[in-house]
Design a protein around this nucleic acid. Sequence first.
DNA 1: CTGAAAGCGCTTACAG
DNA 2: CTGAAAGCGCTTACAG
Lengths: 364, 364
Amino acid sequence: MTKTAPRRSRARPVQDPSQDTALPAGKATINDIARLTGVSKKTVSRVINDSPLVHPETREKILALMKQLGYTPDPQARGLAFRRSFLIGMIYDNPTAQYIVNMQYGALDALRDSGYELVVHPCDSTQEDYIDSVRRFALQQKLHGVILIPRVSEDEQLAAALREIGVRYVRIASIPLDAGPQMVVTQDRQAGTEAANYLESLGHRTLGLITGPRRYRSTIERGGGFVEGLNERGVELPADYTYEGGYTFESGVAGAEYLLAKSPRPTAIFACNDEMAAGVYKAAMRRGLSIPGDLSVVGYDDSPLASQLWPALTTIHLPIRDLGRQAAQMLLSDEPAPDEAATSAPRLVTPQLVVRDSSQRPKG
Amino acid sequence: MTKTAPRRSRARPVQDPSQDTALPAGKATINDIARLTGVSKKTVSRVINDSPLVHPETREKILALMKQLGYTPDPQARGLAFRRSFLIGMIYDNPTAQYIVNMQYGALDALRDSGYELVVHPCDSTQEDYIDSVRRFALQQKLHGVILIPRVSEDEQLAAALREIGVRYVRIASIPLDAGPQMVVTQDRQAGTEAANYLESLGHRTLGLITGPRRYRSTIERGGGFVEGLNERGVELPADYTYEGGYTFESGVAGAEYLLAKSPRPTAIFACNDEMAAGVYKAAMRRGLSIPGDLSVVGYDDSPLASQLWPALTTIHLPIRDLGRQAAQMLLSDEPAPDEAATSAPRLVTPQLVVRDSSQRPKG
DNA sequence: CTGAAAGCGCTTACAG
DNA sequence: CTGAAAGCGCTTACAG
């Protein structure tokens, strides 16, 4: 070892580092930095890891050389020594394309220049072994943490499995399912109630509801909040004016066809996402019903689709990109002390009603 | 070293491996496998890397123990020794959400159980330093390879930069821009011609075209193929019946508004993606024009949107998921000899016209 | 067909 | 504030 070191420095002669073009960008190692600055690699390591135990001058000298050589520590080597990687996993189960992509953009916003990268991991939560497959993924990649998106974020067994193997996670969900630092809460119930208040205040008394699948927590919250909101204002939503959709366009069509055949016909429909609301448009068009003249429609998400529909859709704004950004940020931040963590409040995101052109007072 | 080994095996006593629960799943190392099977770790390494230089019985014994302990080699350690990672990068510049997500699903189809993971890397090709940022990403992560999606796949400077640093890539593009093993070719010109042939055969003589941005190769190919196809059949498309859109819904609306104000008014519009075609629907609706009665519309992509529109959109089917799958597969496969590589044919994907309800003979 | 030694580029644990 | 030694879990280069 004591022999090879000098030999290497002769093989790659670097007298004046400022003149040096022999080291290709991104190929310098901690040993090069240590050798050229005349310190041990441990000291360089301290600078890499922001240790306060380095003399300011030494630190400056090292940082300057790193910058000059375009040195960045090798995440694999660092990871091997740390026994974990610099990868964040995003785990999800088939929401809409817009939802996934915006969530990814948000997470990447937070990860930019952090040295962490995003590894995507869609899965099928209806499969028996999906938890095991996520566990294997997290374990093998030694993930720094994972972001869980509905509906997998609502699965307590998944969360338990991740805790058991010591993998950090942040869950994005309708309600607080975990301690503060593990949660971004979208408060869907509140949004459902807001939709109800709005439509009731316009004068609607006969309403229809198209929910997501029963196994989604958001279905309980959005739908439940809507029904509650109506009840509080003295309007009842009969059980047969609710249709269980699948958060898909086609199920929105089917739901609207079911509801619009009712007598009395609802004058307003709340669809629990924009895709289904678009389906309601199609069904209404086919029946020759005009929106909002004959039927008011309110959606949920405020995806690009909402402003593309004609008339533009009144909907609940969900800041998806922001959710992704916050979740990733929480994974990067240092863990608070366990006792604080248990009691600290989760991040609350407040959904907002966006009134556009698909809703008005009912006729007559 | 020779002292620690026996001590470790006493610290974790493993008499009969089948009874052993001391080694937590996914925590065994190459040393455990070597020790418990009584071979050197080099031999275990040979099994991991499918070397033929292992006695079949030895191999079986090792494989059996690996399976039993749930052992998988640590990708970080392997990567550090190999000087590359087991990560595939997907590089793209803001296409539609459906496009991105399907491409990701496709790539993941090919990567499943391969030991490779997908790292997503959106970027902004209008930024000066984007090539440098992709280069840093590939270098720092020591990517096994990257998948380039339009429009970044069309950037020769990016491709050159990647070649220079020795990072493998597969480009998905309209035309062959590289040697066979680096290309998945979507043959957009052919598709544009097919759209032209179809509309001309219906009897349309006055047509409109809404393209993507000029800097996209697909614009040249789809638009050019369309114009060529019409010309070959004796129909001319005047320059002012072409509108340069931006592959967005809004630009589709603007393009249709421009074209539908023309006199004579086109009886058919070819929009170079489905999003813009949806914009054409909106503009037509606003003007009280019925589709396909007053206006035939043909799109491109066959995204879910196409069958959701009403009437359902006639469009060119692009098998996006399949493109992603093929590209990833090509990155995983062994490199052919350089001389073969240069001459071998690229993967050709044949776009297919899907006739739905948005097109018919012109009136009168 | 098999293995001992050295190394990939970092960090931890310890000593000063 | 600084460093020498050992180690993370693998592979390469060499020897047999």
